[in-house]
Write a protein that binds this DNA or RNA. Structure first.
Lengths: 240, 240
DNA sequence: CCCTTCTATGAATCGTGCT
DNA sequence: CAGCACGATTCATAGAAGG
């Protein structure tokens, strides 16, 4: 039996084909549709939007689905999370990355889809974040997490911290918004050992790499051919 | 001229008596009306609610205004923040403490009152929070911050970090939900030196103590006689 | 030509991690 | 070991496109 499976295609379409009540945990980093006060800012290609002017050419391939406005982001997230709810085991955990701007919307979508909202996990990106004189840095990203129904006791697992301090790892990134594997290993531990984690927005597959290193099975979905291929290579290595 | 002023009474009533466009920053920690998934949980006295069963007798006096449900909390916060908006200078900053559960509601109220939402500051309470096997701790509290209109440049101020790590008990507490002065000193720096900070829910006055230590003027409002008196004593010391 | 909408460009901030 | 590039940015402005 293979320890990881990947699907290439639209998250909503592929989710619909997955079996009900199968996954112990869903851990994912959807497109934020954030970045900028104005609609025109949000509609830029991701390579422009998340890159400082005057920077050297952005080495990452663009990714789609990052330009919805507030209402349609909520609508679409609710659709995706409703399918996600179906495929999650009772008592299973869901964890969704988001930035400060979309945090309220993500918590709404999570609850609209039927999950119980349980908390907010914090990723402290350290002082590498952009500074501004007289104002606070945007130094953290957030993980909105919850459960399908009541929380089962998990006496075999350790108590998990609610915050990770971890700088954005520039060297080891394969995607513009890629997360450090160290961070993902902290989060993947909500899944019991030997259980299966699903990531419907796999990107370059850091969630899966963390699963491989910690003895969890992994299923992932990715839309772009490019990142799907990158992820398969990294997963093959992590699960060998 | 006195460097600090306190008012005893209801926040909404006292705010209505303050002059328009007077304050450089509003920094406050309103009653969260959180604490519990169920209505019956929220209706307990604060001394019970925020104390673990079996703990020694809670030494803090109860405080009111902590038992609103979701809709009325939003309505009431919007009323308070609308008055707050009036008394804030153009380009002034607002910073509101909240827990994860009320963060979306607080950001709604802040925007409904007319402020521009600018970000989320994180207070890492460290591992003092209660652990749970297999789940994340609630390790952080949050500060939703924003501005009245566009952000003026503040070249005279340093760039501020977006996160403070600071244990709850550091430096002694005078109120059940009292904040460490060290934390408040990090936040008070959004106000230019010599400027004036308002705290409509002063509690035991930690915001004001931080202002005293960092050369900002301070005005505070507190409902209960007991905490108003505690705050006055601490302020007299900090501003001498 | 007026008005709205979209696109492109440029400046600024500082600790960290890579070269 | 000393520099240097960089950040899921923010804000302002100028010009092009379209009706």
């Amino acid at each position: 039996m293979t320890e990881f499976v990947t699907y290439q295609g639209d998250a909503l379409a592929r989710l619909a084909e997955l079996p009900s009540e199968h996954y112990d945990a869903v851990i994912t980093d959807p497109p934020y549709s954030s970045g900028g006060t104005f609609r025109s800012d949000r509609q830029q290609a991701t390579g422009q939007k998340y890159t400082q002017t005057g920077e050297k050419k952005n080495p990452f391939s663009d990714f789609p689905g990052d330009n919805r406005d507030g209402r349609s982001f909520l609508y679409w997230m609710t659709l995706v999370l409703s399918e996600t709810y179906r495929v999650t085991k009772n008592g299973g955990t869901i964890a969704l990355f988001t930035d400060w701007r979309q945090l309220p919307t993500v918590s709404d979508a999570l609850q609209a889809a039927g999950f119980v909202w349980r908390g907010v996990y914090v990723w402290d990106k350290t002082l590498a974040a952009r500074p501004r004189k007289g104002y606070f840095r945007q130094q953290a990203e957030f993980v909105v997490w919850g459960s399908k129904g009541p929380l089962p006791a998990k006496p075999e697992l350790p108590a998990l911290p609610g915050l990770t301090t971890c700088s954005v790892n520039k060297g080891g990134r394969f995607h513009q918004t890629g997360k450090p594997v160290e961070l993902m290993k902290a989060i993947v531990q909500v899944c019991p050992e030997g259980g299966t984690v699903l990531d419907p927005f796999m990107g370059s597959g850091s969630t899966g790499v963390a699963c491989g290193e910690l003895g969890r099975k992994f299923h992932g979905i990715e839309y772009t051919d490019h990142y799907h291929e990158v992820a398969r290579e990294r997963l093959a290595q992590a699960f060998q």
